[in-house]
Design a binder for these strands. Structure first.
Length: 572
RNA sequence: GGCUAGGUAGCUCAGCUGGUUAGAGCACAUGACUCAUAAUCAUGGGGUCGGCGGUUCAAGUCCGCCCCUAGCCA
């Protein structure tokens, strides 16, 4: 029994996420959370929507809604999809919550008191028509290098030259198109990451067990070029956590908010506080997960994220926590993922390319997606979704190997013995060999799950399913029954017990099918298997069961072709 | 251009600190079985481990150079 804190990178609010986003953080985090719970650990699994920043404001404007209203609606949409995929968050919070406002301001104040915040004066474009300062990306103009007319303030997409907004010829607002721009002086808060660099580096160096993807990205940012840079943590926006607040150790930040990347990871903590609020619990209930001086010293904290989020979680957020000089819990293990590509290209939210969460659920149940995505998780390299691979994998693994096993054993028993575990017969050499094999495989499965080696765990689970078919095939109760019904009864009894065992083992990957298997066995015994021999005698002779409907129907070639066609183009 | 991660059977991928004839799943072929979602099980064919050099008794595994892919940064 341990206490495990799990967070998934929080999805941005402006739209529905695609399957690449899902498999990069939320889904593997859910797998791990479910496994930890199944092993009897105390788990706190937190996710949220990331709601601040310019893209949210622009998306709201496009939808013709106040940004707060837009975010509230989109949060509910994402929450519903999370439920649809059976993501078992203890709380799905919002970075715009009062809890996050308070904590973000708290951290900023502590950082300033410890000398890690610097006020920097810089010159930035102000749009009179839009009545706001414009971030680099929201200024367009003609590229001084190649003459491209729609170059952005940070980079020219045509010639890829890095630009400063002041380099642009005929600059204009990307929001309104207005050319009434003027350079104004503005002041921003900077997080002095350079002052914390040695501390962060020593911490990273101590994490020798992290995935190479995680540490290599962190070290790159620590050493690349001039090394870790100070980072602006405020922006000229209205939607966000106000940078000027009562008790702030600085002045003149009116009209500015904290940068979304400063407040977003703090939402992990705030989200846990929101959980306590929702449960009617006091502050101690969430602080025992996060404060080393209030009970969190025995917590293991694991984060899940795509590789694009690694710098913020290995450098910026730790800098925030370390710089507070307060005993907040730092992450113990970061599991990061590469990208999932779609049929020869990239998934793309902006281009609407690929399969999005709502579309996926509209054509197949969550378990199909969960199984394919997790068994193909981009752990060591980018991986690729193709409809052919999806169809073949799902049909073979779920329908043929697992689903058909449940079908054949339950239907055989029903036709020869009725819908109850038959009595009589003894365990023999074949059963002992199976048990020995499963003993080894289940322990290997546990080891992979504990190491969060998702593909390996999926491979082992599949082998465990296949072991049932191998056993049945060689034990051949349909032949034995003709001459020795008691012996056949012993085989069938073991086979039906396998169904319950499979439900327990498979639940983290395919929770709905696992529940269906357990229900078919008319059991509610989800105890994780100790000795396999015991686990396979949990259901006793005479125990009644139901022959379930087909667990997984197969994907036909026609369906595959239709989906392939339907999702080839753009969304919307 | 620099950096990072990759380039292993038709496909998707395992291969820790170098060590017996390089592995798995799918696909393919053959056979077995007929309880089952025409499912299952067994056996087999198939790879100069991106290329060229080097270190070593021994390299997919270390070193150098080159080619290709993805991403990050200039």
């Amino acid at each position: 029994m341990a206490r495990i804190l799990i967070t998934s990178a929080i999805p941005y609010i402006n739209g529905i996420k695609h399957l690449g986003n899902l498999v990069g953080s939320q889904l593997p985090a859910d797998l791990y959370a479910r496994y930890c719970r199944a092993r009897g650990h105390e788990v706190m699994f937190i996710c949220a929507t990331d709601e601040h920043g310019t893209p949210a404001e622009l998306a709201a404007a496009k939808a013709g809604k106040p940004v707060a209203e837009y975010c509230a609606e989109m949060h509910e949409v994402q929450a519903e999809l999370a439920r649809g995929f059976r993501l078992s968050f203890d709380h799905f919070g919002r970075s715009s919550s009062a809890r996050n406002h308070a904590l973000t301001q708290h951290f900023a104040r502590r950082l300033a008191e410890n000398g890690f915040i610097e006020v920097v004066t810089e010159r930035q474009f102000f749009s009179i028509a839009d009545n706001r300062f414009l971030p680099d990306r929201y200024i367009e103009g003609t590229c001084p290098n190649c003459g491209y007319e729609k170059a952005r303030g940070d980079q020219c997409e045509n010639c890829t030259k890095q630009l400063d907004p002041t380099d642009l010829i005929n600059p204009r607002s990307a929001i309104s198109g207005s050319t009434e721009l003027e350079l104004r002086e503005t002041r921003h808060l900077y997080l002095r990451q350079r002052a914390l660099k040695d501390e962060i580096e020593a911490w990273i160096d101590s994490k020798t067990d992290w995935p190479i993807l995680t540490t290599s990205i962190a070290k790159k940012w620590l050493h690349d070029g001039d090394g870790l840079q100070d980072r602006g943590i405020t922006r000229d926006l209205s939607w966000g956590v106000p940078a000027q607040f009562p008790g702030a150790p600085w002045e003149g930040m009116e009209g500015k908010v904290f940068y979304v990347w400063f407040d977003a990871p703090i939402e992990y903590i705030a989200g846990t506080a929101e959980w306590a609020d929702a449960k009617g619990l006091d502050d101690a209930a969430w602080r025992r997960w996060w404060r080393l001086d209030e009970g969190a010293e025995d917590v293991r904290y694991v984060q899940f994220m795509g590789k694009d989020n690694v710098p913020f979680h290995t450098l910026s957020f730790p800098a925030t926590i370390m710089g507070s000089r307060e005993p907040w819990k730092l992450v113990d293990y970061i599991k990061s993922f590469n990208y999932l590509n779609y049929d020869g290209g990239q998934f793309s939210t902006s281009q609407g390319r690929g399969v999005f969460m709502d579309q996926a659920l509209s054509i197949l149940p969550a378990d199909y997606w969960r199984w394919w995505l997790l068994s193909h998780a981009p752990e060591s390299a980018d991986s690729e979704f193709t409809w052919e691979n999806f169809q073949v994998s799902v049909n073979k693994d779920l329908a043929d190997v697992l689903g058909n096993f449940v079908s054949r054993i339950t239907k055989f028993c029903r036709s020869k013995f009725g819908e109850a575990l038959p009595e009589g017969g003894e365990i023999g050499a074949a059963e002992r060999a199976l048990i020995e094999d499963l003993e080894r495989r289940v322990r290997a499965y546990e080891a992979h799950m504990e190491a969060i080696e998702i593909r390996k765990a999926a491979t082992e689970l599949r082998a465990i399913w296949a072991a049932g078919n191998e056993y049945l095939q060689s034990a051949a109760p349909w032949s034995v029954f003709k001459t020795d019904p008691e012996r056949a009864a012993a085989i069938v009894r073991l086979g039906l017990n396998l169904v319950r065992l499979y439900a327990v083992l498979s639940e983290p990957f395919i929770p709905d099918a696992a529940a269906a298997m357990m229900k078919a066995m008319r059991s509610d015994d989800w105890a994780w298997p100790g000795a396999i021999a015991d686990a396979l005698s949990a259901l006793h002779p005479g125990h009644e069961f139901e022959t379930p409907d087909v667990l997984f129907r197969k994907i036909s070639d026609e369906e595959r072709e239709e989906w392939q066609h339907r999702f080839a183009g753009r969304r919307d």
